[in-house]
Design a binder for these strands. Structure first.
Lengths: 235, 235
DNA sequence: GCAAAAGTGTTTTTGTTACACCCATGT
DNA sequence: ACATGGGTGTAACAAAAACACTTTTGC
């Protein structure tokens, strides 16, 4: 079959913003770019979409190749298409974000992949338009997490209510009444209380919970309330 | 500067789903494709991103070139990147959706551009993955319009509350109590009541309203409630 | 004078917020 | 025994839902 003649072909890239939570603040995973231009500068995880590979597959492959991470929450965010965003050659980038349990990967990342976690509140200048991408991803997470249970993806399988509350307080840079918070999250029916306690955070210990995966998938797309006064939130 | 060698270059397209409201139901604007493959078959408005043109600019240009429509609400939806979505040659499509006042363009469209409005509930089979695009756009609109005042973009500058309610009822395929509906929308502070009445819909006539553009832009990103029981909505 | 659509208010129910004390345990 | 963080209930308030009648006017 004949081709579309006289049209510009461009490079198609995928970039991924990987979010993690260390129990205290949100972090993003960055890597030192391995090739020119901007070799050695901090960058998001990125790569080119290969022949016979979908954008989706490319995002998962790049995540795996650059960090060893796979099977995590990954969502398409936005396509950045300024003609000069990469000075080398025209490249459109389909930006994604991922949410991972940071503790699960911490060791492997710095040893095997030379990737580093940086606090979302202070991280280096990134190559090209990657800072814009992070800004957009941050807004998207805050937007989506107000109504959908995506932040659980940042926690281990077993977690405590105080841990969960810390996470929400950190993402929204606010403090939440713990009585109201536990009522709200338990009312979603997404959590199962375990008999085991986490004794690392206090003498008394806090009960572990885990996700009810049935309900989690069933209600993922519903509008659940996770934060107070969501109507005052901007994105 | 050297290029990225050994990488696949692909065509970058933009497709636009254009939504309109005829007072009774949601419609989408389709066009008969002008070139091969699939020449003569129904298609979304689409075209290739040109050299030195951003994806954003391309979306606006394509809208203008194919329909004469400009200056309307246009939002990036999703990038479709299956390697075989266009059998001719690998093409990634950055899909957008637009919301327009259908009455403003109706005549010009069929006379000058041979585009046609089809009801969202029954429209022909489209080329490539365009049906998937429409499906996703439909979900996105329902999702977004539950909390943000985007549906006003589908109405003329002057509109009545019954017209507005028809629109919401049509988008959500439901019926809404008119007393609660008017309370909800007037409580947003987005509407200004005019002295003039629309006498076409009834003998008594219904008051026209127009948007308070100040408040519209200020509150566009806030979470406003436009529909009953949004928590039961899926997207 | 009646049919057809517009407009309006109140009560009930539900959900959200504010708020303070006791508990368990390691030291 | 005390310091530290974990856990819980209730009352006040705000928001949403349910609900029915009157108004206008062209025919």
């Amino acid at each position: 079959m004949q081709k579309y003649s006289k049209q510009t072909r461009v490079l198609l890239a995928v970039d991924c913003i990987i979010f993690g939570f260390d129990g205290d603040e949100l972090k993003i995973l960055l890597i030192k770019r391995a090739f020119n231009p901007e070799k050695g500068n901090w960058s998001l995880m990125g790569g080119f979409v290969q022949t016979d590979e979908s954008v989706d597959q490319a995002a998962n492959r790049i995540l795996k190749d650059l960090t060893g991470i796979e099977g995590v929450y990954l969502e398409q965010l936005y396509t950045f298409g300024d003609p000069h965003r990469d000075p080398t050659e025209r490249t459109a980038s389909v930006c994604h974000f991922a949410l991972v349990d940071l503790n699960k990967y911490e060791a492997q990342l710095s040893n095997d992949y030379h990737a580093e976690w940086f606090p979302l509140k202070r991280f280096p200048k990134l190559i090209f338009d990657h800072n814009d991408m992070v800004e957009m991803a941050k807004k998207r997470i805050r937007y989506k997490a107000a109504f959908h249970p995506i932040l659980f993806e940042l926690l281990p399988d077993k977690f405590t209510l105080p841990q969960l509350q810390n996470l929400y307080e950190s993402v929204y840079n606010t403090t939440i009444d713990k009585r109201n918070f536990s009522k709200r999250v338990l009312a979603t029916g997404l959590l199962i209380k375990l008999t085991e306690k986490d004794k690392t955070g206090s003498k008394r210990g806090a009960f572990f919970y885990r996700l009810n995966t049935q309900n989690y998938y069933a209600k993922f797309q519903a509008f659940l309330n996770f934060i107070p006064n969501p109507d005052t939130l901007r994105y």
